[in-house]
Design a protein around this nucleic acid. Structure first.
Lengths: 338, 338
DNA sequence: TTGAAAGCGATACCAT
DNA sequence: ATGGTATCGCTTTCAA
């Protein structure tokens, strides 16, 4: 089989034309006689020629690749994010580079390094310093995802604060609960920070005393189990555990049920994200739905648009809407709500 | 700030030397006088020059990048896999391209396309056809991960069959259980196929009639919930549900507990993988531990080794050991085992 | 020790 | 309509 070792020069030789003509035929630009085009296409076909990316990139000054930078991976949330980003990029025939900075100190350098191999980068909020983002944005278009960077950098994120405030009000007003516990580290990511803000705001608006400090844990299921244990060890079971995301909520649910408590009777639990599992547990999880995949896809689209036409760049923040999803874990009767 | 627009030619001009010397200084090869080296390094430092990857790659015929191809993402398993692969690659200063073929028909072409942008590719078992793997291996070094491809292609995988047979024997012999249900689609991935084989082998060895056909579902938590529902709908609750992986086992656990059944008293559940969550649920999950992250890291290492020295290539299969982890969900008393 | 120059693979401008 | 050639940024002989 004729494979990738073919070059434009080789094809040109075989078809008895110049490399310029091969390029013209392949790219469908310029004037080429029908007869010549046919000969060239035949040679291309016969040897499975495809132009090399490096030569193309070097000549065009474009890589046709985009990068995605995130802190570390964990479960369904990141899965969705990556898939949303990747599938949008692939549709634009751009290849996807990933960089997972988790637990590496030299990540700022590595991100800069990545900027030299791609046409644009999407950075997950809270992954690298604002300063690094600025340096990055100096080199290539940057779009922040699920969080925001320095002022001039465009961002795509979900509405966190109002939704979390609404959910919190639901617990405080509808269910008359007090002394709610918040699980999540506001300093860990912009998302959690905003959700914590919404949680506090709801207390504020209602003239209630500020809530207890958050249980600062990570965002994975085991973190939720751990948080539940810490809360239960205190002797007094909090009436409600408001978790920063669904995964910790699911972990907390497991932890609480494992201790023999009933949900929502003994303790109410809520999440954020609405991952598939949340509708399936018993009781089903009251949470906030955010369009994770669409969020990443939108970030990819904005990035690719800017890459294709730098003039189209705008520091605008795209904020996708979220909706509170009431299910059983908050104490509401489980309705027909899917 | 002097940023990336600097080229070797520019630095050469500034330092009053030739580009060849700049290249020599940067790469630390050849003979350069101390005085000249100093001048060049100064210019490099002053303008933050870093050689461009494209030029380098074009000249060297190497991309310094590797690719990872997988079917779709789901939860902790893929997270670990990607992180293991990525962190090993980054250590070798190779950038990582990803391609997620899930639900796309033209994935074979896209994989071939990727082969033109990287020095080597790791493909997850069951992602693309053996034929596509062969074509791929014709272009760049390929290492299969968690599964195997055509004969000549190296692979890194975990021991599945014997471990699943051992676990199954444990249920059949130690606990005297019969009519075990298997959850997972053997045609979906090599891993599941091998685990199903081990499951059947255990029945065979003990002279028992072959088990019922598997409940063919995917590998994510919701699939496990669904499988449990299907099993429970049949009226007779199976004494044990042997799941192809931990995520479906966790889903099944949730589904079963949600129906008011007790585990392991009413039904036994086992998994495979030993993801972090499995030790935390109640009852803790009896499962098989496989070194997911290490598996991917090893695949990356073998790939990078082959890329660095094609002569080092060997079709050998690296099979990492697995261990049965007995916890509470099989009916054993929960011991000091973490 | 250093520089000039020939590639690497493709594109695009300028002639013809 | 087609070919020759400079160019992209770097590495690597080959001379000097």
């Amino acid at each position: 089989m004729g494979n990738s070792r073919m070059t434009a020069r080789e094809i040109a030789r075989l078809a008895g034309v110049s490399v310029a003509t091969v390029s013209r035929v392949w790219n469908g630009v310029g004037q080429v006689s029908e007869e010549t085009r046919r000969r060239v296409l035949e040679a291309i076909e016969a040897h499975g020629y495809r132009p090399d990316h490096l030569g193309k990139a070097l000549a065009a000054g474009r890589h046709n690749a985009v990068g995605l930078v995130f802190p570390g991976l964990s479960g369904p949330y990141f899965s969705e994010l990556i898939q949303g980003f990747e599938s949008e990029a692939v549709q634009s025939r751009a290849s996807v580079h990933i960089l997972c900075t988790h637990l590496r100190e030299d990540s700022d350098d590595q991100v800069i390094e990545m900027a030299r191999r791609v046409d644009g980068i999407t950075v997950l909020g809270g992954t690298i310093s604002d300063d690094a983002v600025r340096r990055l944005a100096d080199m290539v278009p940057v779009v922040m995802l699920a969080g925001s960077g320095p002022d001039q950098v465009p961002a795509v994120r979900a509405e966190n604060t109002a939704a979390m405030a609404e959910l919190t009000r639901h617990l405080l007003v509808e269910h008359g609960l007090r002394n709610l516990a918040f699980v999540g580290n506001p300093d860990g990511s912009p998302d959690v920070s905003e959700r914590w803000a919404g949680f506090r705001a709801a207390h504020d608006e209602l003239g209630l005393p500020p809530p207890a400090p958050p249980i600062r844990v990570g965002l994975q299921q085991p973190d939720g189990v751990y948080a539940a244990e810490r809360l239960l060890e205190r002797g007094t079971v909090p009436p409600a555990i408001v978790c920063a995301n669904d995964e910790t909520a699911l972990g907390a649910l497991v932890g609480v049920l494992g201790r023999g408590l009933r949900v929502p009777r003994d303790v109410v639990i809520t999440g954020f994200d609405d991952v598939p599992m949340s509708a399936l547990v018993s009781p089903p999880l009251t949470t906030v739905r955010q369009p994770i995949r669409e969020l990443a896809a939108e970030a990819a689209r904005r990035l690719l648009t800017t890459v294709a036409d730098p003039a189209a760049a705008s520091p605008e923040h795209t904020v996708l809407p979220t909706t509170v999803v009431i299910r059983g874990s908050c104490g509401c009767p489980v309705g027909p709500n899917p």
